[in-house]
Design a protein around this nucleic acid. Structure first.
Lengths: 212, 212
DNA sequence: CTGAAACATGAATCAAGATTCAACTTGAAA
DNA sequence: TTTCAAGTTGAATCTTGATTCATGTTTCAG
């Protein structure tokens, strides 16, 4: 519960009006409790089905306190998306950096992405629902994710490990592949071994479908 | 407007209660108008932001008439998802059948899927939102879509055109790829030439990323 | 110790919008 | 023609739940 939103610096929360950043230790604790509770509730029931009261109840906080930290339900959702996006990145990046070559990097990325999704199952759905609740946050997430993939691919090509000319389109394709595999085998069902999924996907990315 | 939901046989609409299938020509016309209007409204504003009144207003029908045909907002949404799912299939299948070999079939599938998405932009988002509004309809859609892809791949392998052993996992990967490319280049922006996207994606699926 | 400034509280307010319903029309079968 | 099932109508009802606010309680700098 208290690790859904670990070391986050959270939202600026300045929105034209008052500055809602907590000034006290007590305040920071409450804010954290609200974010963690919101992650659980939104993750389990979705944006529209969860009420502010659900969030405050789970956080062990009075209804009115919510508005000390957020101006609306959308605002906390948006903060959560930003935070989760950073978490995915933080979870995956070190393993990518540690991988020896371009193809291994893509495999590592998928591997630890599947990891994260499997662990965070419900919570991960928040990012997907953002497509409808906070489209800009959703686009930011995927645009920056894909930008990182594309940069890796180009570096790999420059190093002579990948075909010349790979770039943005290939990056979107890989991102889509990863997301669907995560949804199907990480969230919907744990039937098939993730290791098997990983190997098959990687073979596809590396060498395609054609018989040789 | 009147072609978003062309020759559909629409929903059974029997749900434990009365049979709401129209018995008159007039009734069938109204039902059609409601479905078309709903597709427009849901597509443009999303499920929660569109009211029943928005739908009936656009359909040129009184509020109460809605409940002659549907028991709830969710029900019409579900009917729409089922219908759109069938439309995508209908749009893509003939071209797949016409393609000469396994790889060409996958290319044709992506090609005409991108087509459909580009044409139907907003409307297509309905299927995506179903992940949260009608999860079972969403799963049905993708499970059956993927089943078709997997069957094609297996047939291709049997014909000696594809690697041995390709199947479900590869099919999910391809589906994810297609969906993301459709979202990025079909819905979000028409910047890059779809032909270029198509070629790059196909090369990836056929031969992978590795330098040879 | 003391008094703002921060923070907490939850009943009351308010708006939106889904659903119901009783009265009215239409159209085609008899 | 007549009649009735099918279809139409929109004002009224009902729920739900987000947001406000007036009133307490805590914290901490000085």
């Amino acid at each position: 519960m208290s690790d859904a939103t670990k070391q986050q610096s959270v939202a600026p929360a300045e929105m034209g009006d008052q500055d809602r950043t907590p000034r006290t230790e007590r305040g920071r604790r409450t804010l954290r409790a609200l974010l963690d509770a919101a992650a659980q509730e939104f993750g389990a029931k979705g944006f529209h089905a969860t009420g502010i009261t659900d969030i405050t109840r789970r956080a062990g906080v009075a209804l009115g306190s919510f508005y000390t930290y957020f101006t609306s339900k959308e605002e906390i959702f948006r903060a959560l998306v930003t935070d989760l996006s950073a978490q995915v990145k933080a979870h995956v990046t070190p393993h990518v950096l540690a991988a020896p070559d371009a193809l291994a990097k893509e495999q590592a990325a998928l591997d630890h992405y599947l990891d994260f999704v499997s662990e965070q199952q419900l919570i991960y759905r928040i990012i997907d629902e953002a497509e409808f609740v906070a489209p800009d946050a959703y686009q930011d997430h995927y645009r920056s994710t894909v930008a990182r993939i594309a940069a890796r691919l180009q570096a790999g090509a420059a190093a002579g490990e990948l075909r010349e000319g790979v770039g943005e389109v290939e990056a979107w394709a890989i991102a889509g592949m990863n997301v669907f595999l995560g949804l199907r085998y990480g969230v919907w069902g744990n039937d098939r071994e993730l290791r098997d999924v990983l190997e098959r996907a990687h073979q596809l990315v590396a060498d395609g479908l054609r018989k040789r």
